[in-house]
């Protein structure tokens, strides 16, 4: 199946490109748009982005794999990203990760069989004053405890 933006995304794509002084600069927002539409950035999506952005597909690959926020494989509906860097570590981030692993019965980089959660550890998310913390998809969850993190996960359907 050929990868192609929906009409709505195409309009957004055109608006994004028009916004920048040079088309190349639209690469990251266009990749976000593609990730939003296609779920993750497969080689087919990279080829499509390469075509519409007029850049070689190898360059798209280089960009996609450089950044942590582009997923090249399918991930769960809720991507749990627990910060592991020093300020969060001092506040017990490892215990939070442990609690999540135990509750969801998955390890780092793994997705629950129902496709609901994927668990990752990430580096500092600029929320050190409210450590430990995690990001789930777009949202930050701060001042976590082993108890409240479980309740939080229960609410994420």
């Amino acid at each position: 199946m050929a990868v192609k933006f929906s009409d709505e995304s195409l309009k957004k794509f055109e608006a994004i490109v028009a916004r920048y002084p040079q088309k190349n600069a639209a690469m990251l927002p266009v990749l976000y748009l593609a990730q939003q539409e296609f779920g993750y950035i497969s080689p087919e999506v990279m080829e499509y982005v390469s075509q519409i952005m007029d850049v070689p597909v190898a360059r798209v690959l280089g960009v996609v794999t450089f950044y942590t926020m582009f997923n090249t494989k399918p991930i769960g509906r809720h991507h749990i990203q627990v910060c592991r860097t020093l300020p969060c570590a001092l506040a017990g981030a490892e215990r939070i990760t442990g609690a999540i692993k135990e509750k969801l019965k998955i390890g780092l980089g793994e997705t629950t069989p129902d496709g609901r959660f994927t668990l990752s550890e990430v580096e500092c998310l600029a929320s050190c004053g409210t450590a430990p913390m995690m990001q789930v998809n777009d949202d930050y969850y701060e001042n976590l405890t082993e108890k409240n993190v479980g309740e939080l996960l229960d609410r994420l359907k």
């Binding site: 080689p43 070689p56 597909v57 190898a58 360059r59 690959l61 280089g62 794999t65 450089f66």
Partner: peptide, 27 residues
């Protein structure tokens, strides 16, 4: 490949010590 042939087959993928040279899948 970027500057002489302008065919751009290769790129650096990933970062830090996982950085490596790669060809796009199936190219």
């Amino acid at each position: 490949l970027q500057e002489v042939t302008r065919t751009d087959e290769l790129t650096v993928v990933n970062r830090s010590d996982h950085a490596t040279i790669a060809l796009f899948p199936e190219k």
